[in-house]
Design a protein around this nucleic acid. Structure first.
Lengths: 203, 203, 203, 203
DNA sequence: GGCTAAGCGAGACGGTACGTCCTGTCTTCCT
DNA sequence: AGGAAGACAGGACGTACCGTCTCGCTTAGCC
């Protein structure tokens, strides 16, 4: 993944030997995500199953990723679809759109993947660090811009603690996903959270 | 653990044979927590390591817990110290005390344990469900009571969405712990979040 | 193998834990020999195939033998049936009996095993050394005794070079086995070699 | 090798494209022999190691030889120096010269190669057959001629069993090489064997 | 005080997955 | 077209745990 990116950035140093198969890359990532969704967690899937489902030899997997964890983090990165950059209506509309996107994601297949993976993360600090850098931060940045713009337009209070607000919004929307599967979040959770955030709870 | 509780509830049905060693129970749970902190995640520790560190045979572990996950959830339950029931000052003071307690917990050893475990949780829904029922919900209930009292005393707005507020507070305080270890949360995060929650962000 | 022998020599120090299964020992050695005969050479068989055919887990094999080579040498040792101690008739009769036994062995299943294995032996000098010590030398000793007795009884010349004679007899009977499978040795090879050895070739 | 021979026999059919590099041929065979001596047995060396040591791509090896075994047999053929055709003195002198040559060969580097290879031979019958035809038989033929001449000159007995005598001589001289490396054969083994063969062991 | 039943440390059992290495084939660019 | 490089599918290697089982030995309560 990262190598592919790196290589494609510069105009191909023309390495000798047979080039790596792009189909294999895709098949492996695809198989990984499927298994990650079906089974569960880093522990729940096996490299051998990944290779088998991808129709690929084990060595083809290990040539690209040094171990299971690194494969999984790259597979997850493949779904890091950025949050929809909000149209730019009222701050409330923008925040609501973002909150609902996060809420939807929670139940989506990849949502589960992320959580399954992040659990065992203390063991792999770089895994977590990279995930933060490449996935989490860009998303917060979008919210941060919406909030800043709100301050400028006067929609939000001038002394707003932007980071605390981000933390609350993101926290509320993602924490819920840890509830038992049965406990579906209420449909209107996004709206209720955004409104509570806007108005505050003080009388 | 659960069996121990069950047994200690009724006055000993007086089973025949040698009774189970209480020292073994403790040693196993202790070893589990130590390994959970040192290593990481459900996947990171092995039953053999637990037994070895506890100075106990593997069968002594398996006699008490049917598998790794059940052992771990019981070990975690051993640290479910309840949040300090707030003294009952102003709502702000109470919320702040709770928030700071959660914040402190995040960096504590058991804090890490919880997160390490919750990751691979999709595979073990009952683990997660039980954890929610026995650990998470009681804690939310404490916050819930503080908020309800605030509404009654008029400190908080009458149309407050209690659940949304809980979600935001808990989410903000716990999500942070997933940042890379280096990224220590700001000292005053609790205060900033509580104030932002109280006042709202709208102008 | 060696461990079993060692243990059974002394009256069991009563080691803790579940004792090793004698059935597994047998099944593994049996499977090894079968595969050694069917397939060929150290390289031709796999530990996984051995375990599978023996109906045993791989770890059960590796608990007893540290690697493929050590397993194979022990399997071969299991067939080191000693040469029939000759009845003690005339020297010619005794030598003929021994030569014919060696000749028969050549075509037998285990004969092939030995050769298949001895090939890659430079890599495992201890394998070869042990095989010599435990299998080859005892056999030569039998021939040596027959020749010495012949000298004493006056059947053989007094100035006989015993070791050279052994080398010639054993060499002639075993070298042949390296001929292509098609080239069956003549029925009467043993007799012809013994007589040539007795009479010499000089006029 | 075989292809090279075939091509060099006829005056080059003038194939299109770049001709094969003679340097590559040599480098590959050289590398094979070196590894065969250092490591051990057909199983002990890898095509990748051969190609790497020869400074050659794997495909360059596989273009010339279809698999490991064929490469090895050709590499060995490169050392099949014929036995010195004996000067034609007394039969004893001739046999002694041949025996000593065989004895010397045993300790030489290629000696080891041959044995290393012959071990795993059941799996590759054609390898063995070819080796017999091209290396072993020519050598026996030399001994055979010496013995026949001895019969004609009256030095050897008229009713000599030529094949049995060959078997004993060759067997005695080559079998020894299977002893552990430490056990060097006695200096005078050749002489003792030849004399024992000549005089017989009977009183 | 002996009997009975369960607990105990130890470790073997059949399995599964790991990550490494090598085989023999293929695909690319360079000469 | 040959050559060097190296990717490809496949499969065995030897290791580490899983959760179960079998040993011989305590350690209790009940007779």
């Amino acid at each position: 993944m990262s190598q592919t990116e790196t290589r494609s950035r510069r105009p191909e140093p023309a390495r000798p030997g047979r080039p790596r198969s792009a189909r294999a890359d895709e098949a492996i990532l695809q198989a990984t995500l499927e298994l990650l969704a079906e089974e569960a967690g880093v522990a729940g899937i096996s490299m051998e199953a990944v290779a088998a489902r991808a129709g690929v030899g084990k060595s083809t997997v290990y040539r690209r990723w040094p171990n299971k964890e690194r494969l999984i983090v790259d597979a997850l990165a493949a779904l890091k679809r950025p949050l929809p950059d909000p149209a730019g209506g009222s701050v409330r509309d923008d925040l609501l759109a973002l909150a609902e996107a996060m809420c939807r994601e929670r139940s989506a297949k990849h949502g589960r993947c992320l959580w399954n993976v992040l659990g065992g993360a203390d063991k792999y600090p770089e895994l977590l660090a990279r995930y933060h850098r490449e996935v989490i931060e860009p998303r917060r940045e979008i919210i941060r811009r919406v909030l800043r713009r709100g301050v400028e337009t006067g929609e939000l209070r001038a002394d707003l603690d932007v980071e605390a607000a981000i933390e609350m919004l993101v926290g509320a929307m993602t924490l819920q996903s840890r509830a038992p599967a049965a406990t579906a979040p209420p449909e209107d959770l996004a709206e209720r959270v955004v409104d509570t955030l806007l108005r505050g709870i003080a009388a």
